[in-house]
Design a protein around this nucleic acid. Structure first.
Lengths: 232, 232
DNA sequence: ACAGAAACTTGATAATTATCAAGGAGACCC
DNA sequence: GGGTCTCCTTGATAATTATCAAGTTTCTGT
């Protein structure tokens, strides 16, 4: 498998410390595939056959139980998902589907575990990646347990705004229904939460959100580095 | 440091594959300490100075934000906590306090990271431990997003009952206030949730809970291996 | 450009969960 | 043994969030 996407995959912190030979061995059996939007890539409960890496587009991780469904996370380029299941040779805890047309690299699980055993540097990089994943979920969990719906939305907007360069405007990276589910509320409630935030300078125009009074929005949101910061 | 607790610490999957020399090096600077109940061991936001291992008692991991507080997890012997922060040399995302008088082993972070670099087997064990931690939080998060308060309680009771040998009776391993917070509800609500479960054979007598109609309780709870099972 | 579908919004209402206030049970201490 | 304290429970009420049922807008494909 050869492709112009390889360098960007290689540059992931998960891979950039490993030997060329190991990386090549890992990619030997990998394949890059383009999927249309709304295609279910993996289903929770299935054995973890591949490690997935999103190189273009966007993938939604979600979970189902008892007829309900909830978005757990959104994976944007360049990001991996379900690493833990692959390493443990366990079943997936979450399902995944493309939120839009997406390019995804699939590396057979056995191969990942094999190189993990052989390449010490790769094993160490995996530790860092897993630690980051763990801390991300802990933050999500704190967000849900310690904040109201409106607060979760406000903080998420502030976060997206930062990621997009703090121009005073942001574009939602996925549709509102998915955002609602990610934030743990219904679409109707998200709509109302946006209305609640209007007095705090939040202007909604489709997927474009204007933040015209960040000071006051932050007073309401009370952002917390131990929940909202990607780095800490 | 020598102690009768060492063998049980050594038997943790995190340590049982490592060299004797590495283990000894790790324990060289470690110290075992007994803390009274309700003592705050670590505070979120502080740098991760130690890896903690509970050998006796019970430790509560909790988080605070904006004047609110929520229990994130309970760590029982023999279990570790805040491994991710130690490895990343980052600040703690959660605070910890003893739920009862507890014996805790503290290993200086630097030492953990040092041995992690030197002992390949230890590094691999850490991956497994981290993957397990990650999957546990994902399950907690699913539990909270996909279930109502009563369902969360019902499933937790079923889980505790299994852990305690399915005798028809279980003993709550910590007080109801903490259980309520862990399950993401108020103490008042937990009390009412118990009442709601009475028609399903749940009898409350202080810390002792009788489960007299598990079939019907399971019909309500709809346990899911991808949320409730410790192993998967 | 237009029809149809999907996504989003709004209003009305219901369910769930939280808050406040008070009472009761049990543990602990002198 | 009585008092005090903490924890738990219960009742009344309020706030939050979800559901149901239209509308409205936006997107898509032809």
């Amino acid at each position: 498998m050869r492709s112009s996407d390889l360098p960007q995959v290689r540059s992931l912190s998960l891979f950039d410390d490993m030997d060329d030979s190991s990386f090549d061995a890992l990619m030997q059996t990998a394949y890059l595939q383009v999927f249309p939007a709304q295609l279910e890539l993996i289903t929770e409960g299935d054995p973890a056959d591949f490690l997935y890496i999103v190189t273009e587009g966007c993938v939604e991780l979600f979970a189902r139980s008892n007829g309900r469904e909830s978005t757990m996370a959104m994976v944007r380029p360049v990001g991996t998902f379900i690493l833990a299941a692959v390493l443990k040779d366990a079943v997936y805890l979450m399902s995944a589907r493309t939120a839009q047309r997406s390019k995804v690299l699939l590396i057979p699980s056995e191969n990942v575990r094999d190189i993990f055993q052989k390449d010490e540097q790769f094993a160490r990089s995996i530790v860092v990646e897993l630690a980051n994943c763990y801390r991300s979920v802990v933050k999500e969990h704190k967000d849900l347990k310690l904040r109201s719906a409106v607060e979760r939305l406000a903080n998420r907007l502030i976060r997206m705004h930062k990621q997009q360069g703090e121009s005073g405007t942001l574009t939602l990276p996925f549709d509102k229904r998915t955002l609602a589910s990610l934030l743990g509320m219904t679409p109707e409630n998200l709509s109302r939460a946006f209305n609640t935030l209007r007095p705090y300078g939040v202007d909604v125009d489709g997927m474009t959100i204007g933040l015209n009074d960040i000071k006051s929005l932050e007073t309401l949101a009370k952002p917390n580095v131990l929940i909202d910061d990607q780095l800490t």
